[in-house]
Each structure stands twice: as C-alpha cells, then as structure tokens.
Amino acid sequence: MGAVRFGVGDLAQLRFAVSPLWETVASLRAAADPGRHAVHLPWIKQALTVREDRGELLARLAGFVPPAPRCPLSEIEEELALLAARPGPAGAPDAVLAWWRAAVRPHWPRIRAVLEADIAYRTRQLAEDGIQEVLARLHPEVRWTGDRLVSQGLPAGEARLDGTGITLVPSAFAARCRLLEGSGGTPPSLVYPARGVGTLWERHCGPGEGLARLLGRSRAGLLARTSSPATTTQLAVRTGLSPGAVSQHLAVLRDAGLVTGHRYGREVNYRATDMGLALLGDGDGDGDGRA
C-alpha cells in the first residue's frame, strides 16, 4: 500500500496528459501477457502477426519505466527524443519505436479517442464535483483520505509532491495505477486505467440508412464517429476524407446543433451533442458520454 501526499499548491497544479510513449510500452507488456489483458485480445492477435519478436523487444525494455510526460499532447517522436537524451535507457528508444510503428500507430487514433474521452469526463467532473472527487474516483482501488491519495498500486510508503503538482495520465493498457517520477522540472505523473476501454476494439456499425439519407453518407459517418471526442485530423484518418472536407461537414453539423467543438491545448475536439446522439440512437439517453 502506498500513498501520495498533496499540499494546497499541488491540488492547484493538477493536469492531464496523454503519453504515446507510455501506451506503447504498456501495450507491449500487455501483448506478452494476454491472460491479464483479455479485453485487448482482438488487438493482441493482430499485433503479434506483425511483430513476432516481442520477446526480444521486451528484453531490451527490461526494467525500463517511461518518464513522466512533459506536456499534455506530446507526439511519440518528442517523447523518444527526450528519452534518448537521458542516461541509461540504451536500446529502449529503438525497441519502443519498432513496436509503435508496427502495432500501435495504426490504431492510435482509436486509442487516443478513448483517452481523450476519459479526460473530457474527468474535466467535467472537476467542474461539477471538485478535485477531490476526481482523485477519489480514478479507479476502484484508489482512495482519497484527508490530503493523501492511497492505492495498492502505488509504491510502498508515502511520496510527497511538495508543490510540484501532478499530471494524471489515462491509459488504455494499464491494469492498475502507477506513479511515474518527475525530473528536470517535470512533475510526477499518476497513470490510471482509462474509462471505456472495454469498447476499444468493438466493431462499430455505421449510421443507419435513414440517417445517411437525411444527412448524406459522409456527414452521417462523421456524426457516428463523434460519439467520443475526435479532432479533424483523427476524423479524416478514420473516414478517408480530406481534412478540408471534414472541416466543411463538421461546420454543417455544428450549425445544425449536432456536434460541438471544445479546444484542448492546440487542438479542437468535436463531439456529438445530445441531439446528435439521439439521432444516432445512443441508448443511454442522458448524453453525458459515460462509458
């Protein structure tokens, strides 16, 4: 059992981030232990056909723990460049990059959409219920007591933030919470299992014919892919449309009140509104997007 002690200044410096480096390393370890990661079996079966040398890659990552992410929306090339500049991780950047290109990058838009949906949920929870409620509900094994976050997944003893703040990092491949040490002005990070991972590898049906006739097949397809937050670039990759065409269709859907856009860092994430979800036949009826 471990704990992280927060000061008042630490609570004020809580951030969120997505780390493709962490996800790549965690996904490789998940592929090596499919029994513990049954939810990812559809992906694992495919990943192992494109890279059969996972044992060799894992050996090169023995004892390697990814550093805490330095900014909310890093690309993996940025994270690997920082990693290569650190002493010690010989061979790790090459092993990570090999697995990323073969097994993770083709699915990254889908994975990232799940992570961004989790962040959108947590930030809404932050606005409605406060920081302590966000921390207390990160995972069933996590408890918030007084000024401490307590979990069986944290290192034994008590870590003090001492004004550095902390970055919360949702993960599609993490089985439990994990604390990543900060360095060089980078605050520590708490990796936690993201919501909605059970739907990650589901085959989603396209919009119904009626909706396609009403909106046009391209716009109906875009609307269907905004049930979780997505950027223009991500939607272009998923639909095969050009970014310009996606932008034009999103403008029409936004003017009709079917999607809304929210800026997160340097990007705008588009998500279906309650009306858009109703047209898609989203069954939960509350439009809050909870997985």
Rank of each mutant, 00 (worst) to 15 (best):
R124H: 02
P155Y: 05
L200R: 06
E116F: 08
S247G: 14
V25N: 03
D118N: 13
R110M: 04
G63C: 04
V268M: 03
N269M: 13
P188V: 07
L161I: 07
R290Q: 07
R213S: 04
G196E: 09
V268I: 08
I166Y: 09
S27C: 05
G240L: 11
E79V: 11
A174F: 09
P188M: 06
P155R: 03
T167L: 02
A194W: 12
A84I: 01
G283M: 07
A120W: 15
A174C: 14
D286S: 05
T233E: 12
Q132I: 04
L253H: 07
L211R: 06
A251R: 15
A95L: 09
A12W: 03
G289C: 06
G9K: 15
G289S: 05
A98R: 15
A136T: 02
A220R: 02
V18I: 10
R137C: 01
G240H: 11
D129H: 15
F16G: 00
D282P: 06
T167P: 13
V134K: 01
R213N: 02
Y121H: 13
G185W: 12
P20D: 08
T145R: 15
R36S: 15
R29W: 15
E79A: 00
E202C: 10
P89N: 11
H37K: 00
E181G: 08
L82R: 15
S151T: 09
T49K: 14
R203G: 05
W144T: 04
R112G: 04
E78H: 14
T231W: 03
D284E: 12
V150M: 07
E158R: 15
E77L: 05
R148S: 10
F16R: 01
L168T: 02
T145P: 06
S19Q: 09
L235E: 01
F6S: 03
A68D: 07
A120Y: 11
M275Y: 14
E128D: 10
G210D: 03
A220Y: 06
G185Y: 08
P155W: 02
E128S: 08
D284H: 11
T186R: 14
G281F: 08
V268W: 03
G184H: 14
W201T: 00
L126G: 03
I44L: 14
A81I: 01
V25D: 02
A212H: 01
V169T: 06
C205W: 05
L41C: 00
T186L: 08
G146D: 12
R70H: 13
T239N: 10
V114T: 13
S19F: 05
L253G: 02
A84S: 13
A236Y: 13
R263K: 13
G265E: 12
T164A: 07
Y264G: 06
A85Y: 04
A272V: 11
L57G: 10
A12E: 11
Y192K: 00
G285N: 08
Q125D: 03
P188L: 05
L279W: 13
L179P: 09
A120E: 14
L168D: 00
A3H: 04
H139S: 12
L97F: 12
S74P: 15
